[in-house]
Design a binder for these strands. Sequence first.
DNA 1: TATATAGTGTTTTTT
DNA 2: ACACTATATA
Length: 767
Amino acid sequence: MNQQEITGNLNSEQREAVLATEGPVLILAGAGSGKTRVLVHRIAYLIDVLGVSPGEILAITFTNKAADEMRSRVDRMIGFGADQILVSTFHSFCVRILRRNAELLGYSRYFSIYDGDDQLTLMKQIFKQQNTDSRMMKEKSVLAAISSAKDELVDPARFREINTDYYSTKVGTLYGIYQDRLRENNAMDFDDLIFRTVELFEKHPEVLDACQDRFRYLMIDEYQDTNTAQFRLVSLLASKYRNLCVVGDDDQSIYKFRGANIRNILGFEKVFPDAKVVRLEQNYRSTQNILNAANEVIRHNHGRKDKRLWTENEAGTRVALRRFEDGFREAEYVAAEIRKDVEERRFDYQDCAVLYRTNAQSRLFEEKFLMANIPYRIIGGINFYARKEIKDLIAYLKTVDNGNDDLAVQRIINVPKRGIGGTTVAKLSAYAEAGGISFFDSICEAREVMGLSSAAVKKLAGFAALIAGLRVKAESTGPAELLRNVIRDTGYEDELKAENTDEAEARLENIDELVSKAVQYEENAEEPTLSGFLEEVALIADIDSLDDSENRVLLMTLHSAKGLEFPCVYMAGMEEGLFPSRLSLDADDAEGEIEEERRLAYVGITRAKKKLTLLSARSRMLRGEMVSNTLSRFVREIPRELIDLGDEGGRGRTPVLRGKVGRDLRDAILKPYDSGEKFGIPAPSGSGTGGRLLSGTSGRGTGAAAASAGPASVDYSAGDRVRHVKFGEGTVLSMEDGGRDILVTVDFPAWGVKKFYAGFARLVKVD
DNA sequence: TATATAGTGTTTTTT
DNA sequence: ACACTATATA
């Protein structure tokens, strides 16, 4: 392809970004401005016009899915050599470098990668060993502190220098022990992958130099979400040839909790004064109404790079706002609406996505979609690789691959049950500790360990022989066949088969799936190895396994939705306390946290191409308790004229009774339990500029679907005295239809007014 | 040692 | 509502 063919159908800013190949470049790419397109064309230009060898190009993306997509698009465009381009995530890239140079850091090349669960297990062990009271100090918060430190390239020694208060001193100690234990286990956590690579580059300039010469052209996508360690990594790699192109949008920075440093993008021009800056502000994705709503929301943030997206697309329909009594009806509405849109051929299932702030919100939608027979897929939540049976089998593979991984060995030493219990494990641990050897080695020397019964020694010998056999097998075969051996030789499969329950059946299916993943890996990898398979398993993100050919509605968190787009988007739970989350509202830096949530709202809104529906519930079930929320500020920040409220006449709320609600309930329900207008959107304030939203308008959707089950039967009604296990005696104020059950409101003198579902509150009538 | 039960705490987003 | 932990018991 020549230059004309590559840049012909780009707009002038996009073209400028493609042609700026030498020196530092910052591309400020607004949502939907065709940034992936620019990157793909830029790579094609480098190769086809400038004659750069594909192997000299490194592109870092945020997810493996994005990497795959970019690679295949380049492939389609230039038709050859695209497989030579290294497109990968930060973490995969680092593992690649680290495997080759692990010895330089005192690691073996077979190091394990620890995920969050592994980290927690390890930290719990350390707490126990250090007699740290987990009621005073939480393992998770210590891990969070360690993670932030690593994101900032702060090692334990430095950490102790900077932090001298009581709590931090303790954390510093634990941090040091944690790092020692990781090293003893020949393991790295996610943050180490970045940190250790930086360490490698800084301590071994010859390795850095080789990498610099190998990767002369660097491109970093989603640059706004890089942390300090990643920034240092990029700076080091780019420092020789300076061909660094970063692409990002400060308005879409949503990973501060993971260490993302927004200064990396806001200050790029300070670090690289000669940087060329290109702004992509034309949006090709959304309708004008959707884009305007997004612009209006994000306008409320301070300290952003000034920009305003525009589009030549049609105005489209207004942004819909639908409000409901509770989460059940919110979900019901979405199910009914999607059903209608599909039946009337406006959209297909796969055109629709439901986005929410927390994974817990998915359950209601899942239930309603199941009932309405709507095909769906949930991204995130419980990761496939986090399931017990998968983690067990992976632990076997880790044990075979890396005998120093004590965590893995301890996980499976008695799975399936071999009669090796806690006491035996404790004795072995002590012996290993004293002799400075690994846990597995102590098993091999079981006869020398004081205090072990001959029966225990025998069992341990059996286990050691099992692993030895698998290791021999691993010499001559790939991960998939090895995995089959593990499943068979350990008795794992037999144990599950013997159980003969639905749950065991499901686990067996998951195991089959893991085997097929291993087979797939062997087919696709250039050089399949056991470490390679384990690494792929560790670094896979939920979103990576998304198959876009499935015709299903997608449900995921707003975070997971970054980088995706859908014709029809539902944003659920637009409520203060949920989105923005309570934690942000109460945080020390509430201002900053809310701005981050606002960016998340911006990301959500800009995912939509044609139709956007914002949803909120007046109250919802949260950890077994009913909580009331007001409408999210992010909705209120959208001007009234951009919003379609649906049932415009605003009859106010008219609770609709459904199904077989008893007559005695009716009176109670008709009494509003909340007199004020706090549910309503604030009336237009005097300030004239278009005003804000109307007040007192209700969403509809009540009675959208038939009630699925009659409410639980109870022997009390409004006015009665009842007893609750926790709250004691109280007076029933009202009872109403809560969708699947009766919603009871009770006034407890000591606790105030509480709401329950009759089914699970188990209230007892007091005479 | 393994399992059942009661009690406790949770409470965002993820590579 | 749910998961996890500590404790009691077989």
